[in-house]
Design a binder for these strands. Structure first.
Lengths: 142, 142
DNA sequence: ATAGTCAAGGTCAAAGATGGTCAAAGGGTG
DNA sequence: CACCCTTTGACCATCTTTGACCTTGACTAT
């Protein structure tokens, strides 16, 4: 897939967050713009479209000298999904009104019942795949 | 019988999919149109008529800068039975009004995207499990 | 304290870049 | 000829990139 500038900046920031100790980074908008040779508002755009609460992030910022933008990931990272993780993710999506009660119930039913024949590690991989696909889905679907 | 442009584009895409690792390709509509010296909507036409769900393909796209069209083949000779089975089962449940359109779409997305890291046999088992759990679900839910 | 200056970040709308839709025109085949 | 599939193009929807203008906060000179 060809990556747009916005995609690249998004990825860059997500790697930074992954590497951070507390899933939180502070950047300077203009500095990042400089790094990617773009206008500062491009950074604002990326944050506005890819680091929303829906996506599991919240942001704070301060203007003026020594300003910053802080991004914190509050939802679970992609790795190591387990059943209860996915449950809370479903709950979360339901609260955000990205899934209906019924949809959440359907998913929950599947999660509990559909994969019992697999060993624990396989199930974990399955859950991980579902989680990723689910987060893609809610992004495009509302 | 003479091969139409649409036929050529179809063949071209199918070769690309065959060669791909995961039976999934991403193209740019306008670029492909350029390659075949035709209007972009020709590509849309080919995809709409020859890469349907019935044919065993699933497509997604994104507009705007660096947009793309992604085509996934889910129906490979050996494993196709199950996934397309599940698809038609979803369709069936939707027609019976046991699932909503949106629920069916959500499931379809998960089916196509969540399990690509697994080998075909595992996927088949997964689909089987899902099908069972799904049929239980709709029983309890009505 | 007060006001001025400058260095951030924010907003918003326009322009650019793709893909989608639909209906009309074109062409081949029975 | 009639029908169906193909080809085109005008217009639409969505996502990205850019830039002009606005707001805020820290620091400094008075």
């Amino acid at each position: 897939m060809k990556k747009s500038l916005a995609d690249k900046i998004e990825q860059y920031l997500k790697v930074l967050i992954d590497r951070s100790d507390d899933k939180r980074i502070e950047i300077q908008r203009s500095e990042l713009a400089e790094t990617f040779s773009c206008v500062p508002s491009q950074v604002t755009y990326v944050i506005a479209t890819r680091f929303t609460e829906r996506d599991g992030y919240y942001t704070e910022s301060r203007r003026g000298g020594k300003g910053y933008v802080r991004i914190t990931r509050f939802s679970m990272p992609q790795e190591g999904a387990n059943l209860s993780d996915l449950f809370s993710y479903c709950d979360y999506l339901t609260e955000m009104e990205l899934l209906t009660e019924r949809e959440s119930k359907l998913l929950t039913h599947l999660l509990v019942n559909a994969f019992n024949q697999f060993p624990a590690e396989t199930r974990e991989e399955i859950f991980e795949g579902i989680k990723k696909a689910l987060s893609e889905y809610v992004k495009t679907e509302s």
